[in-house]
Simulated assay, not measured.
Amino acid sequence: MSDSTANRQPEASAEILLVACPIDASVNRVPRAKLDRSPKCGKCHAPLFAGKVVELTGATFDSHALKSDLPIVIDFWAEWCGPCRTMTPNFETAAPRLEPRVRLGKLDTEAEPAIAGRYGIRSIPSIIMIRKGQEMARTSGAMPTSAIVEWVEQALKRA
């Protein structure tokens, strides 16, 4: 083995992403090249990308927002909020258009006030893109599906 071979880092390790399961929140190692090939959770065997919004709770939030390498776009909402309810179907329609580049999640600010407080949520609906716990982008107000998709794509370009 030559010195240059011995000192080289494995290239594949940079291409492995940690992805939280939308069902049980277990963190899975997935090669970047296989994100669009219907990977399944190693624990529960559910698809990692089903084109659906993930309901986030205090128990699952950290796996998706802190541990996963994928950005998560979170809709901070509450049941009593009319604009939040109006935007829900638009946000759900955006999920299959944006996966597997990002995960979409919803967090009920009434059920999880500590998490909403951690991110300084002052009005709802608010949408925040987070990667590894760091805020990448934020917007407020109800939006149609096309505006949600465009906002996410622009935020990914800036990141």
Results as ranks from 00 to 15, higher is better:
32 R>I: 15
30 V>Q: 00
44 C>T: 10
147 A>F: 08
81 C>F: 03
103 R>S: 13
57 T>H: 13
34 K>F: 14
101 R>S: 14
48 L>Q: 07
41 C>Q: 01
49 F>V: 10
42 G>Y: 00
85 R>V: 12
101 R>Y: 13
2 S>Q: 10
63 S>P: 04
111 A>K: 09
124 I>V: 09
106 K>C: 01
11 E>N: 08
133 G>F: 06
37 R>Y: 11
126 S>G: 01
107 L>H: 05
113 P>T: 00
113 P>I: 02
7 N>H: 13
121 I>Y: 05
69 D>V: 06
143 M>W: 03
13 S>I: 15
144 P>S: 09
147 A>I: 06
105 G>R: 01
65 A>I: 11
35 L>R: 09
52 K>L: 12
114 A>M: 07
83 P>E: 13
58 G>F: 02
36 D>G: 11
137 A>Y: 00
104 L>R: 00
55 E>M: 14
142 A>G: 01
129 M>N: 10
59 A>D: 11
124 I>M: 07
106 K>D: 05
126 S>L: 01
93 T>S: 14
59 A>K: 15
51 G>K: 10
114 A>D: 12
62 D>F: 03
69 D>M: 02
36 D>K: 14
123 S>M: 06
57 T>A: 14
51 G>M: 14
108 D>C: 04
26 S>P: 00
20 A>F: 04
95 A>H: 10
105 G>I: 06
84 C>I: 06
64 H>V: 11
57 T>G: 12
76 F>G: 00
150 E>W: 02
80 W>G: 01
32 R>N: 14
34 K>Y: 12
43 K>P: 01
27 V>A: 03
150 E>F: 04
92 E>W: 04
11 E>M: 09
86 T>H: 13
20 A>M: 08
145 T>V: 12
110 E>T: 15
106 K>P: 01
37 R>T: 13
49 F>W: 09
94 A>Y: 00
8 R>M: 02
103 R>G: 05
23 I>L: 10
11 E>H: 06
156 L>N: 03
111 A>T: 10
3 D>N: 15
147 A>N: 09
66 L>N: 07
18 L>G: 11
151 W>K: 05
115 I>A: 03
112 E>P: 07
154 Q>S: 05
14 A>G: 10
18 L>F: 13
62 D>A: 13
106 K>Q: 07
1 M>D: 12
76 F>W: 03
56 L>E: 09
141 G>R: 06
82 G>C: 04
18 L>R: 15
49 F>A: 07
113 P>G: 00
159 A>V: 12
54 V>R: 00
99 E>M: 15
107 L>I: 04
6 A>C: 14
145 T>C: 14
14 A>P: 02
115 I>K: 06
159 A>N: 14
